[in-house]
Design a protein around this nucleic acid. Structure first.
Lengths: 228, 228
DNA sequence: ACAAAAGTGTTCCTTTTACACCCATGA
DNA sequence: TCATGGGTGTAAAAGGAACACTTTTGT
């Protein structure tokens, strides 16, 4: 097949849809483009894959370069290939998404992105290219996956209240949940440990919990399925 | 950003994992490679994306070219990018899968594939490249999706018995299902129409049913979720 | 004393599971 | 008449949804 190798003609990029939670709202990380095309517009952070890296590697590198965020768990969700998705050349892009605690990362603008910011997902602007489509597909994927895996826990502070956790789910799923039912269900899974510490707030103290990763893995290997 | 465009350095291929059902067994479509590398080995049908087509288009074209199967519903499931996944060059591949009735398609060998055949999934050989990984990821995806969408129906003959349908699900999910529970559940969804015709078999006649696509779409638009 | 968030049980209803016998047909 | 696959109902258990009052704390 060697002789059939076409000259590669398409560039490959990665676009990152980083969802953030600040305790209140679901946000997404966007950058202001400081290079052509679409200079000055807000878009998803993305960039070219390099020769010596996989798509996973590229996603990590690019995200760090553009926003300063490194070493987070990102997952591939889809590859986009419309002919005219980029105005200047044939560019395929693979989408990655993640969900993180937006309070725990410092954003650093860069040469490639003059500004970087969190924006509430209700307020996302129209993005250039097909970034709007990419964003929506990522959100859809997140909403499905968050019910099937304890993605949410990993982004809360290591100690959190059940109300914190419920808020997170309500915001991601964009629906209200019954407090008692939520607590019963999540506690019944046996993957949360109640601590003796409490969180002092403006009102009644609330018990803090932590996610028991070990127990979760143990249960999982015995056929347990997280399901919200 | 124009000036930053790297010369594209990676080729892009599509690999198709076509699952077939012949009424009894779950199979996958494989081809015998008639070109380098790995000439003569059995692998998944795949090939290069061309300039003027999307990944979806490429999947259709390549599948037809290699196997003669055209115009089926395929869905993208993942893109693979390991550095050494192809021995001769940097090649990224995007996986597509489909589920079809293997009795209803004639396989045509081609210049690129000296032979094409269905093989039962329990008997798949070790594939070259990372095709074994691709195959397993496709199977996993199929098993998840088949519970959430009526993928299965579309591949049975347009009239089928409930036992046919149950066999299909048992084979895909690789588990036994209770006959009465299966029937109750699937009929309760209201997306099957019982016909007056029966299928004469070696034993008692069995009622034929058809999948009511219209009703399915109507229900879906009202928030109904297929769930097996 | 009031406002605001935390915590807690019960009832009802739906869904899931487990299970066994008769029927029709062809060989 | 026997072997084979088709067809059917029920009871028990588990899970999901709906719902209101008391406690604690700060202001």
């Amino acid at each position: 097949m060697k002789q059939q190798f076409l000259q590669p003609f398409a560039s490959i990029t990665v676009d990152c849809v980083i969802f953030g939670f600040d305790g209140k709202k679901l946000q997404v990380l966007i950058i202001k483009r400081s290079s052509e095309p679409e200079v000055g517009k807000w878009s998803l952070p993305g960039g070219f894959m390099e020769k010596n890296e996989t798509l996973d590697d590229a996603a990590q590198r690019i995200l760090e370069k553009l926003t300063g965020i490194s070493n987070i768990y990102m997952e591939q969700f889809y590859s986009f290939s419309k002919l005219d998705r980029h105005p200047d050349a044939r560019v395929l892009t693979t989408g990655y998404y993640a969900l993180i605690d937006s309070n725990h990362y410092k954003l650093k603008p860069s040469w490639f992105a003059s500004e970087t910011k969190w924006i509430e997902i209700k307020n996302v602007p129209k993005f250039p290219f097909d970034h709007t489509e990419i964003f929506h597909k990522a959100l859809e994927t997140l909403q499905k996956e968050v019910k099937l895996r304890p993605i949410g826990f990993e982004l809360l502070p290591s100690k959190f209240t059940l109300t914190d956790l419920q808020n997170l789910y309500e915001v991601i799923l964009d629906q209200q949940l019954d407090r008692r039912n939520f607590r019963r269900k999540i506690l019944a899974m046996g993957i949360l440990t109640q601590l003796k510490e409490v969180k002092k707030g403006a009102h009644k103290d609330a018990y803090l919990y932590k996610f028991d990763k070990k127990e979760y893995r143990a249960l999982t290997s015995q056929g347990f399925d997280f399901k919200l």
